[in-house]
């Protein structure tokens, strides 16, 4: 009995050393050799997480290795991005950044430990989710112009909901107020769900949020939409006019999602990831999934690393003054 077990142990040890020996030769092989982790800085189930999972599923197939989603939540997404930015730049850790983490964050979080434009190697833009201006269903104004007038004249008696500091509805909502000159009372919620609930119940008057979150309630008639902040109408909400059509020129926002890697990524690895992302976005089912959510898929010219880098820089420049001014305005 004793002999048998010692023998088993010995042969196991031998097997292990054999595999360890083999490993030395395999290192030079091409990327990827093991599963890739994609850090999503928001809770599972949210719009960014859903987009990441849709894209990662196709990327796993074309890369031949699993792309595993890891949700690291907190501080408006900056916790996850900070952690991912400190990972080794070997392509095995990438992240799904978005408008908040790579645009609004520098203005909102003082001790931010990364620079959206400098700490990353951009891989590519994945999807955009348009912003919709929605109000409680019995809000009297018939169109956007009347709505803006009512919100402005209502002053602080109007209640605007948002889903917490750093959320998309927060920054886009503040941008809306800045562009229209409205001064509503801000009512804060933990996440979009409870905010929508109070909007449906008529406790608050309006909010701005991503189409994924509000489309079913709009089509179900429990809230009403005044405009969608994109250049073109969405196929999901064909009856909702664009902001430009409705007479608000300067308000086009989309909560974009994009894949980044920590700075210092080897060129070939970056190119492989970019190609895999591109393939995913060309794929019919992947595209359809994103479009069905009301999202937009960027064309091949606007999604590469260079275009993404430009987008990040312009977004930081756009959000910083607006959000700083709003923060200074409130005590």
């Amino acid at each position: 009995m004793k002999d048998a077990t010692t023998r088993t142990v010995r042969s196991l040890c031998l097997a292990l050393t054999a595999t360890l020996g083999l490993a030395g030769h395999a290192r030079a092989d091409a990327f990827p050799q093991r599963p890739i982790t994609m850090v999503v800085p928001f809770a599972a189930g949210g719009p960014t997480d859903v987009i990441a999972r849709i894209v990662a599923e196709h990327m796993s197939r074309s890369l031949g290795q699993q792309v595993v989603i890891e949700n690291v939540t907190g501080a408006g997404g900056t916790t996850g991005i900070t952690r991912a930015s400190q990972a080794a730049p070997d392509g095995y850790t990438v992240m799904m950044g978005h408008m908040g983490t790579h645009g609004a964050a520098p203005a909102l979080f003082k001790g931010l430990r990364y620079d959206p434009a400098k700490s990353f190697d951009p891989i590519g833009l994945a999807a955009g989710t348009p912003i919709v201006i929605v109000a409680r269903k019995d809000f009297a104004a018939p169109d956007l112009k009347a709505f803006i007038a009512a919100v402005k004249s209502g002053g602080t008696s109007i209640n605007q909901a948002h889903a917490g500091v750093g959320s998309v509805s927060h920054s886009t909502g503040i941008l809306f107020d800045a562009k229209t000159g409205a001064k509503p009372t801000l009512v804060v919620y933990r996440g979009t769900g409870p905010a929508l609930n109070d909007l449906m119940a008529g406790q608050v008057d309006f909010m701005t949020d991503q189409i994924v979150n509000v489309a079913p309630q709009i089509t179900g008639g429990t809230i009403k939409a005044y405009a969608i902040a994109t250049p073109e109408r969405s196929t999901v909400l064909p009856d909702v006019p664009t902001t430009k059509e409705a007479g608000l020129d300067d308000y086009e926002v989309s909560a974009w999602n994009a894949v980044f890697a920590p700075k210092g990524l080897p060129k070939e690895v970056g190119a492989k990831l970019e190609a895999a992302l591109g393939k995913a976005l060309e794929d019919e089912t992947t595209r359809k999934r994103i479009l069905d959510l009301g999202g937009t898929v960027p064309g091949s010219g606007e999604r590469g690393p260079a275009a993404l880098q430009r987008l990040v820089e312009s977004e930081v420049a756009r959000w910083t003054p607006v959000l700083r001014a709003a923060a200074d305005g409130t005590p």
Partner: peptide, 11 residues
């Protein structure tokens, strides 16, 4: 260990 083995054995 994972890095050393990467490629030769699936995790």
């Amino acid at each position: 260990v994972l890095e050393a083995l990467s490629g030769s054995v699936s995790p």
